[in-house]
Computed example of a mutant assay.
Amino acid sequence: MSQLAFGCGPVGGRGEAGRAESLAALDAAWAGGIRHFDTAPSYGDGAGERLLGEALRHWPRPAVTVTSKVGRLRMAIADPYRADPGARRDPAFDFTASGVRRGVVDSLARLGIEYLDEVLVHDPDDQLDLALAETFPVLHELKAAGTVRAVGVGTTSVPAARRLVAIGVVDVVMIANGWTLTRRDAAVLLDECAAAGVAVQAAAPFDSGLLATDDPAPDARYLYRPVPATVLATAREMARVCRAAGVTLPHAALQFPTRHPAVSRVVAGMRSAAEVRRNLALLADPVPEALWAELAQVLR
């Protein structure tokens, strides 16, 4: 079983426009040994769950781990993974008990399954008190009933994740944009998760696009926005160091998160079979150990 998890954000954001390619990517993931699939209602306003649900009909359910989310109903950008993502819109959230119950029911219907292996509270950073009062208690009730197997948080906020780990309400933490070659803010969080026995999934290893090629371009996306000049310069220097060691920047970027013992999976958004096969190959091919110290020096 691969340590790589399939992130459904890109296929969901594209929706029906890329349905055939998206389903081919999901099939390639299964064929390549990926057994963990991460989605959310906000990925393409439900499209990510519907596409994954179509693929799930062809796989033995006990062999697959499915993660979805509650709380965030809509992204600020319909498809933030495109080079030109289009206009921003008001995001939508609902962390109330009734909203969470409804969200789980709706996700199960779109996926066509009877239980969720993991449910993550999606970006509760600005409504953490409400999430603690209503969202997490409902999810733990659903866990006791067997509808949900594990409860966690999916966020870009290291402080929010640390608070939830300290309180002891999460089995799983998905941290996005916090544990990558260029961003290491989550180091303390990962140590705390390891001590608490909380599994960590490191999402967005390519910084939403910047580290996905060996020649980072000025128009690359970084955290779903245009890349700052200073960050671009860092990525290009890292690419140079990687080339000198005989590897590519994406190769190092995908393997870096796995170096921490708390990280159980790397969640990468993929939208084609070719991307799936490339990432599986990159994760399977070891990176020279000496490279990691050289890349760390670039950040100093």
Rank of each mutant, 00 (worst) to 15 (best):
S42Y: 07
R72T: 02
G46T: 09
R61C: 07
D106P: 03
A63C: 05
D117L: 08
L142P: 00
D38A: 04
M75S: 13
A87W: 05
P124D: 07
W59P: 06
D84R: 14
G99I: 05
L139F: 11
H58E: 15
R57D: 04
L108G: 03
D38I: 11
V151C: 01
A40R: 01
T135I: 10
A109W: 03
L130W: 07
E49C: 06
T135N: 02
A161I: 10
V70I: 06
L108N: 07
K143T: 04
G146M: 02
P91L: 12
A150F: 10
W30N: 13
F95E: 01
G53A: 03
P85R: 05
A78S: 13
L111V: 04
F37H: 10
P91T: 08
Y115V: 05
G48W: 06
P62A: 09
R149D: 01
A133R: 14
L164I: 11
V138G: 10
D129W: 01
A40P: 00
V121F: 08
A31S: 15
V138F: 11
G71C: 01
V165N: 00
D38E: 12
D123E: 14
E54W: 04
V64T: 08
G53L: 08
V151R: 02
I34D: 10
G71P: 01
D90P: 12
S98M: 15
P60Q: 07
A161Y: 10
L142N: 00
